[in-house]
C-alpha cells in the first residue's frame, strides 16, 4: 500500500515531466519517416480498412445490436478497435519502457515509475486523435454527439489506470527477465479475439457461463464503455455497476502488486542490463 502511494505521488509530482517527455517520445519515434507523426494515424487506419474488408465485405458480418438498435458492423468495429490499438501499443511499449531507456538516465534518483507512464502518455495523444477521427466518422454516418459522450472521459481515465497498473508489473518483470517481453508480445494478440473487439460477445448467449467469464476481462469492460458512449445507448458504468466495482478492484490489486515490485527492484534495474 505504501509503495502504491509513493508511485502515485511520483506521477502527480512529475506530471510536467511526463507531458514533456512523452512529446519527445513521439518525436524520436517518427524522426526518420517523411510523414512523421502522421504514421501514428495512418497505420491503424490501414488496419481498420483491412478488417473492414475481411469482416465487413468478404464475410459480410451482420449488424450488431447496440441498445436494441442495429449498428453497421464496421462502425461497431471502429468504436472498439481504437481502444484496442491504444491498449496494444501501450502494453508493448510499456513493457520494454524501462530496460530500453535505462541507459539514457544519468541519475538513479530519477523517479523511474514515470517511465511507463510517459510512454503510455505518448500513445495517449494518438488515442485522442483517433477518437476524434472516430467521432467525425460517426457524425457523417448519423450517430450524433449525445449526452453519453461524457462517459468517454471516465473511460479514458479508466483505460489509463489499467494500462499504468499493468505496465508497472510488466516493465519490472521484463527488465529482470527479458524473455517475458517476448512472451507478452506473442500472446497479447489473443486479447484482440477475446475482448469483444472483432465480434460481439453476445454471440456466446448459448454458453452463459463462458460469457460471464469473458466479461471479467477488464479490457472488455472498457471497450463496451466506449461503445456505449459513441452509440448513446446507456451510462455503461452505472447500469453495469457490479462490473465497475469489479474493474476497480482489479486495478487496485494490480497497482499494489505492480508498485511493490517496482519499488522493490528499481534500485537494482541497472544491474540487470
Amino acid at each position: 500500500m505504501k509503495s502504491a502511494w509513493k508511485v502515485i505521488k511520483e506521477q502527480i509530482d512529475h506530471f510536467y515531466l511526463i507531458r514533456r517527455l512523452s512529446l519527445y517520445e513521439l518525436k524520436n519515434k517518427n524522426k526518420n519517416n517523411y510523414l512523421g507523426m502522421a504514421w501514428e494515424l495512418i497505420s491503424p487506419s490501414i488496419q481498420i480498412m483491412i478488417y473492414w474488408f475481411v469482416f465487413g465485405l468478404l464475410l459480410s458480418r451482420e449488424d450488431v445490436t447496440m441498445g436494441g438498435e442495429p449498428v453497421p458492423f464496421i462502425l461497431w468495429l471502429i468504436g472498439g478497435f481504437f481502444v484496442w490499438t491504444f491498449f496494444y501499443q501501450s502494453i508493448i511499449q510499456g513493457s520494454k519502457s524501462i530496460y530500453s531507456r535505462l541507459r539514457m538516465l544519468s541519475k538513479m534518483n530519477f523517479p523511474m515509475s514515470i517511465i511507463p507512464s510517459y510512454v503510455i502518455f505518448s500513445q495517449f495523444y494518438v488515442h485522442l486523435a483517433m477518437i476524434s477521427i472516430a467521432i467525425i466518422i460517426y457524425q457523417v454516418m448519423g450517430y450524433y454527439i449525445n449526452i453519453y459522450y461524457l462517459q468517454l472521459i471516465y473511460c479514458i481515465f479508466a483505460t489509463f489506470c489499467l494500462l499504468f497498473a499493468i505496465s508497472l508489473i510488466t516493465s519490472t518483470i521484463s527488465t529482470i527477465v527479458r524473455d517475458f517481453h517476448m512472451l507478452l508480445s506473442s500472446t497479447l494478440r489473443m486479447f484482440l479475439y477475446i475482448s469483444g473487439v472483432l465480434w460481439p460477445l453476445s454471440k456466446l448467449e448459448e454458453f452463459p457461463w463462458l460469457l460471464n467469464i469473458m466479461q471479467l476481462n477488464p479490457l472488455y469492460y472498457l471497450i463496451q464503455g466506449y461503445r456505449a458512449a459513441f452509440f448513446g445507448t446507456e451510462w455503461f458504468f452505472i447500469t453495469n455497476w457490479h462490473l465497475t466495482i469489479y474493474f476497480w478492484i482489479v486495478i487496485i490489486v494490480l497497482l499494489i502488486i505492480g508498485a511493490n515490485m517496482h519499488v522493490r527492484f528499481r534500485k537494482h534495474f541497472i544491474d540487470f542490463l
Binding site: L17, R20, L21, Y24, K27, N28, K31, N32, M104, L105, S106, K107, F110
Partner: peptide
C-alpha cells in the same frame, strides 16, 4: 539519443535532470 538532434538532446537531458 541518436535519432534526436543535439538541441533536442540537450533539452531532454536537462528535463531528466
Amino acid at each position: 539519443k541518436g535519432d534526436l538532434t543535439g538541441r533536442d538532446n540537450i533539452e531532454l537531458k536537462l528535463l531528466m535532470l
